[in-house]
């Protein structure tokens, strides 16, 4: 099985780094994501290593890194599925004290938990860190951060934080 040919059958947007055995499939339409994921899974990529985002000024790239345990040929290959979504404009609100609160709305992408259940915790992490709502995730809650950080999305580049003065009563 030639992995390069198989992958280029699935998607034409394939970035290959042969020296490092890294392959990256770039998905341009959200509706295609689950179909592409299913065909990748049928090739033998059976688990998700990491789900993460990369924050850019106007967009967020969501990356699923998948790998294989069951297929002897695919064990040494890293495959990334990347999808880029546009960020909505932040909403600025002025409250009664005159402070400006910047509300940064989350973005939405399809969830791949139905394809790879191993991504269930990683997708929750990406949700709290980047504000990526995974549509179709069965249990999308905050995983690590306490309630102080609801809606702040710490790993976005425009995250600013103020340590609250009173941590504990």
């Amino acid at each position: 099985m030639n992995i390069k040919d198989e992958l280029s059958k699935i998607s034409t947007n394939l970035v290959i780094d042969e020296k490092r055995a890294n392959y990256k499939i770039i998905i341009d339409e959200p509706s295609k994501l689950i179909d592409v994921a299913n065909s990748i899974k049928n090739l033998g990529f059976d688990h998700v290593v990491s789900v993460t985002g990369v924050d850019y000024p106007d967009k967020i790239e969501v990356i699923w890194h998948v790998s294989s345990y069951s297929s002897e040929e695919l064990k040494g290959i890293d495959l990334a599925i990347s999808m880029t979504v546009k960020k909505p404009e932040p909403l600025k609100q002025t409250d009664a004290q005159g402070n400006i609160n910047v509300n940064r709305p989350p973005v939405t992408v399809p969830s791949l938990v139905s394809v790879w259940p191993s991504g269930i915790f990683s997708e929750r992490e990406a949700f709290e860190m980047f504000g990526i709502i995974f549509d179709g995730h069965p249990d999308l809650r905050y995983l690590m951060l306490p309630e102080d950080f609801y809606g702040t999305w710490p790993l976005r580049k425009d995250f600013t934080y103020q340590k609250p003065k009173v941590f504990i009563e």
Binding site: L145, F149, P154, F159, Y161, K163, F167, I168
Partner: peptide, 10 residues
């Protein structure tokens, strides 16, 4: 870090 706190504060 945004998430840590030193012991003497509490």
């Amino acid at each position: 870090s945004y998430n840590t706190i030193v012991a003497r504060e509490y």
